[in-house]
């Protein structure tokens, strides 16, 4: 398959993450779980910020991690886009330069970066905000910029770590619809980390439930609802009903 295949463990003092996940091109898989389950750690390993101990990550046929073969591709060369939990927009750069950042460092030219970013500024309806600084943006606008910045790096895969967490409840529904539309336009595999069942239902077809560093259920969202495998999943689908 051409998507993302990961089979990894990550050993930390007092914590062990074990994860096997396959995501096809154009598919979004949700990684659900309570706080401390290892969701963000999984994102850190998939994006190359942490090396698995041991593990193997393959993306579109490219081996990104293979501890047996001592392969570890660092984040800058993985072509994996990340929307971080608190977005991590560059505070000193305008919206335009945030979106242009990947093309800027790739071409070593701020001007060329801006030219290539223009398409993304338009696609995300950011023209009016292009010269604003991140601190001037609302939560929903900042989230849109973070997604545009990640997609503008033309990644082979997209990782979204709680992308809605900065938004209030009312803004979430709109943001979800918008995110779903942008994900439809992205043809790589997407992993969405969330602890909100509504996010998963709106954006993903399948879900992995991560509890205490282990996958406790892997199923479609309909199956999760019909047959929750653990008390956590039962509470999750109960609360969402």
């Amino acid at each position: 398959m051409n998507g993302l295949e990961a089979r990894l463990t990550l050993e930390r003092p007092g914590f062990r993450l074990e994860l096997a996940v396959e995501v096809a091109r154009g598919e979004t898989v949700a990684l659900l779980g309570p706080n401390g389950a290892g969701k963000s750690t999984a994102i850190a390993v998939l994006s190359g910020l942490l090396a698995p101990t041991p593990g193997r990550v393959v993306l579109g046929g490219r081996v990104l991690d293979d501890t047996a073969a001592r392969v570890h591709v660092d984040p800058a060369r993985r072509r994996v886009g990340v929307v971080f939990q608190d977005l991590q927009l560059f505070p000193h750069l305008s919206v335009r330069d945030n979106v242009a950042f990947a093309a800027w460092v790739g071409s070593r030219s701020r001007r060329r970066g801006r030219m290539r970013a223009q398409e993304w500024i338009e696609r995300f309806s950011l023209e009016a905000l292009a010269d604003a600084r991140p601190r001037e943006l609302s939560g929903g606008q900042a989230q849109r910029v973070a997604l545009a910045r990640a997609l503008a790096s033309e990644p082979d895969a997209l990782l979204l770590d709680e992308p809605m967490s900065a938004l209030d409840v009312e803004a979430r529904a709109d943001a979800r619809a918008e995110l779903a539309e942008h994900l439809r336009g992205f043809d790589g595999p997407t992993v969405l980390v969330t602890h909100d069942l509504a996010d998963a239902e709106a954006l993903a077809g399948r879900a992995l439930v991560l509890e205490g560093g282990r996958v406790t259920q892997a199923a479609t969202l309909a199956e999760l609802r019909a047959a929750p495998a653990t008390p956590y999943v039962a509470r999750l689908v109960g609360a969402g009903a």
Binding site: S47, G48, L49, D74, P75, A76, R77, R78, R79, V80, G81, V82, F84, D86, Q88, F90, P91, H92, L93, F101, A102, W104, V105, G106, R149, A150, S153
Partner: peptide
Amino acid sequence: DRRIEQAAATLGASRMQTFALVTVPTVG
């Protein structure tokens, strides 16, 4: 926040680029 440097890395910035374009301006 070191994660802002990690964000730069995931966007393809080398360590020198991250230092020059993100770290130094942030602590400017």
